[in-house]
Structures are given as C-alpha cells and as structure tokens.
C-alpha cells in the first residue's frame, strides 16, 4: 500500500466514525458546536499520531505478551500531554470538552490503530496512518457538529448565518439530536457508497 492509499483509507473507506463507528462517546457528546467538534478532532489527531509514532518506534522493544498494557500507558501519556497543553493554552475549549479529553485514552480507535497498524509497520507509514484516521475522524466531527450547530442554533462558529426569523431547532444540539443526526449521516454515507458500487 502506498502512502496516499493509507491516508485515503482512513479518511474515506474506513472512516472511523461514519464507517467503523468506533469512539462514539465523544463524537456524540461534544459536537454541539463546530468549534468544539474541530477542537476534539485535532486533540484526537495529536494523540493518535503521537502514540502511533512511539509504538512503531518501540515495536521491536515491546514484547508481545505485554503489548496491550504498554499501548495503554503510551496512549494515556499522550492523552495527558494533550490535556495539560489544552488546559494551559486553550482554556475555553478545555472547559467545553471537559471529561471527554481524558476519555480520549479509551477511544477504541486509538488502541485499534496501535494494535492493527503501528505495531506492525514502520514509523513513516504509522504517521500517515495516524494522520489519515485522525483526519477521517475530524471530517466526521466537522460534518456532524456543523449540521447540529446550524440547525440547533442558526450559527456556524458562533456567527449567525440564518436570518433572525429562524426559530432554532433546539433538539439538534440536545442529546437526542446527536443520535438522530449521526444516524442519518451514516445512512447517507451508506447510500452514497452503495450507489458508487452499483
């Protein structure tokens, strides 16, 4: 597989949210606004790429028997790094994302990439895989959060994009909206990929 294919694979064919449906908690919870969705997406890219790099560098050193605990420690360390940096430099975003920043550590996507890719491939490929999967995650977050903020608040990035006469569909930024809109988005992706095949 060449580098471009690895990257494209993560963004489209195996998109973590829209196709594999892993790491759902944060996806549903923080996509109430576009800014939060992008912030979370970037945090996940950082942890995923960082842990992919370290794990692929250490793959000869980590024995098979203890690879899972070793992955968990490395992922937790990167999560804490992101947590501390956001706490110090992007405080408003840190407060908005709350408990979902430390919870990146249990995002199944990251452990799955460590096990399925980084532990078996070289550093460069692992970086590309991390970025590809991460960007795929970010794209899905952007899609979901922009639809939710647009319908639920009439804004994008907090700026009004609809006339004042628009009555916001509150349900879109409340919990039910997260489930329903994500369900419909996945349905749309299924539909498009089926049409492409046919």
């Amino acid at each position: 597989m060449n580098k471009l294919d690895i990257f494209k694979n993560g963004v489209t064919k195996e998109n973590p949210i829209l196709v594999q449906q892993v790491g759902m908690c944060a996806t549903l919870a923080v996509t109430t606004s576009l800014l939060n969705g992008i912030g979370m997406g970037i945090a996940v890219i950082a942890v995923l790429t960082g842990s992919n790099i370290v794990i692929s560098l250490l793959r000869k050193f980590i024995p098979d028997e203890v690879r899972i605990p070793a992955f968990v420690i490395i992922i937790a360390a990167f999560t804490t790094i992101v947590d501390l940096l956001m706490h110090a430099y992007t405080f408003a975003l840190y407060q908005a994302l709350g408990v979902f920043i430390p919870l990146i550590v249990v995002n199944c996507l990251i452990l799955a990439r460590a096990e399925a890719f980084a532990f078996k491939n070289g550093v460069v490929d692992s970086i590309v895989d991390g970025l590809g999967m991460g960007v795929g995650y970010l794209v899905a977050m952007i899609l979901l959060s922009s639809v939710r903020e647009f319908l639920g608040n009439g804004t994008l990035f907090g700026i009004n994009v609809l006339p004042a006469s628009y009555e916001p569909m509150m349900i879109a930024i409340q919990p039910p909206g997260a489930f329903i809109i994500l369900g419909l988005l996945i349905g749309l992706v299924n539909y498009l990929s089926r049409r492409k095949k046919a």
């Binding site: 250490l58 050193f61 980590i62 024995p63 203890v66 605990p69 070793a70 420690i73 490395i74 937790a76 360390a77 804490t80 790094i81 501390l84 940096l85 706490h87 110090a88």
Partner: peptide
C-alpha cells in the same frame, strides 16, 4: 519493560506539568 515505559512516561508528564 513495562515499568521502564511507565517511568519514562511519568517523567515526561512531570516535566510538562511543571512547565504548564
């Protein structure tokens, strides 16, 4: 080996915690 990985991680975090 696990201990070594944990110790290095903790060291990196301690440094970062201190600077932030």
């Amino acid at each position: 080996i696990l201990f070594l990985i944990a110790a290095i991680s903790a060291g990196v975090l301690a440094f970062l915690n201190d600077s932030t």
